[in-house]
Amino acid sequence: MRPTAFNGPTEMTGISGWLGAEASAALALSLKVSVVATLVSLPFGVLTAFALARWRFPGRQILNGLVHLPLVLPPVVTGYILLLTFGRSGVFGGALAELGIVFAFRWTGAALAAAIMAFPLMVRAVRLSIDAVDPALEAAASTLGANRLWVFLTVTLPLILPGILTGAVLAFAKAMGEFGATITFVANIPGETQTLPTAIYSFLQVPGAEPEVVRLVLISVAVALGALALSEWLSVRVARWVAGR
C-alpha cells in the first residue's frame, strides 16, 4: 500500500484534479460512508432517543450506557469489538455474511463503524429535543383520537425535527472524521475502505506527501465547518417553522 504522492498526467478537473486520484477516491468514499451511516442510523437513533426519554423499562440504564459507550471507549477498542462481532467469524458477522451482507474490510464496515461512533451524538441531540416537547400536547392529541403511533408521527416528530436535523448533521460530521474504529475494523485499503482521515494518515507516512496532506486537511476543515454552519442554519429555520413564527 504505497500512496502515490504525485499524480501523473491529469485528465481530471475541479476538486478531483486538484486532489489527485487517490485522495479524491478517499473523499468520495468518506462522503458515501458518512451519508449512508447517518441515514441508516437515523431511524434507530430517533427510536433509541424516544425510548430513553419516554419509556420506563428494565435495562433502560444499560441501554443508555451502551449507547454512550463509543463516546468513552478508546475508538480502537470499539473497532476491535466490531471486528469480533461483525467480522466474518463474528457472532453477527457470520450470520449476516450468509445473507450477503459483509462488513469486514468493506466500505459497509466503514459505514457501520462511523454509525456506531456517531450514534451517541445523534441520540443526545434528538433526546434533548424530545425532552423539550410538552407531553401535554401529546395528551391533547390522544384525546382527539390519535393512537400512540399517530401522536408520535403527527405531533412529536414534527416538533423534534430541529433536534433530528442537528443530530444528523453532527453525526455526519463525526462520521467524516472517524479514524480509530474504522482503521481497526476495516483497515485502510485505498478505493475500498480508505476514508479521508485514514488517507491523511497514509500520506503522512510517505516522505514528500505534505501537499496531499494539506489539501485533505483543508477539505476536512471545510466539510466540518460547512456541516456546523448548515446545522445551525437548518435548526434555526426549522425551529422557526415549527413554532409558526
Binding site: A139, A140, S142, L144, G145, L159, W241
Partner: peptide, 22 residues
C-alpha cells in the same frame, strides 16, 4: 379504553394547540 378510543373531547386550561399546525 385508551384516551383515543373514549371519544371524549378535552378543552384544556392552556388550550394546548399544536404549534406546528395552522
Amino acid at each position: 379504553l385508551p384516551p383515543h378510543r373514549r371519544r371524549i373531547g378535552y378543552v384544556f386550561q392552556d388550550a394546548r394547540l399544536f404549534p406546528h399546525l395552522t
